[in-house]
Design a protein around this nucleic acid. Structure first.
Lengths: 132, 132
DNA sequence: CAGAATCCGCAGCGATACTG
DNA sequence: CAGTATCGCTGCGGATTCTG
């Protein structure tokens, strides 16, 4: 699973694919990528509207995230060359598919939060018991 | 979607849940979390076996990742108190569910890598065209 | 309004060495 | 073998400023 290019040529592209998908996955599942995708799943948004929806994100990170997602073909960027500029972001069909899968994962995790919290308590208790 | 505790008490736990799930999601989807979960989906492994499977991970990060996943209740850790120590990691039922969803997402993304790469090329080309 | 550019701090990572 | 401890450094991410 290494990304170093010290492999036979035949397996090189296999690793390239694996590494590409890893990179893409990090865009998608990264802190802001998840939130941006989730927000856009509700419909198209303009930059600052998105910024308000994904509360806590800085301008820089939102721009960075959107660019990465646009480059990967998950997000469509529609700019009207007016003054003031008006730019709308929306999901591409591919983006919508990914957002859907992501949503399933998120909903599974969110539904299990109580179990996770119980597991956390049990774990922490066991730890502190050992400490004593 | 803020995590700052400056909200009414009624909505506080809603945010707490949202933030908890965000944290959990970052454990799961983070660079090493993904790989660890994917590796464990194939079966139980001992520490160093896992380390070899998830090639490129440092001892420290693997230990850290596994602890986070264990604390969240996704991974079970079975230690035999022998010398030398023998520790086996495996997925809990909950972990298996999450790994499954994760796998669906990964496979979707991997299957679409060609499209992503095409989108990247188109994007980069458009960029450099503007530069000229 | 939508971004690009710049500066900077510090969390987090990796490498290394050590322990039970 | 399965970790913990320590340290140096990189790079992520926030704040700020500037442009079209």
């Amino acid at each position: 699973m290494s990304c170093d290019a010290e492999h036979d040529q035949l397996v090189a592209d296999v690793f390239a694919r694996a590494c590409t998908s890893r990179g893409v996955l990090e865009h998608v599942t990264g802190r802001w990528g998840t939130l941006a995708l989730a927000a856009l799943a509700e419909g198209p948004f303009r930059f600052n509207a998105l910024r308000r929806k994904v509360d806590g994100v800085s301008e820089k990170m939102l721009a960075q995230t959107l660019q990465a997602l646009e480059r990967d073909g998950f997000v469509h960027r529609e700019a009207e060359p007016t003054i003031p500029p008006r730019v709308e972001y929306s999901l591409t069909p591919l983006g919508a598919e990914v957002a859907g899968r992501l949503r399933e994962l998120i909903e599974l995790v969110e539904g299990r939060v109580p179990e996770v919290e119980a597991a956390r308590r049990a774990y922490d208790e066991a730890k502190s018991a050992v400490a004593r």
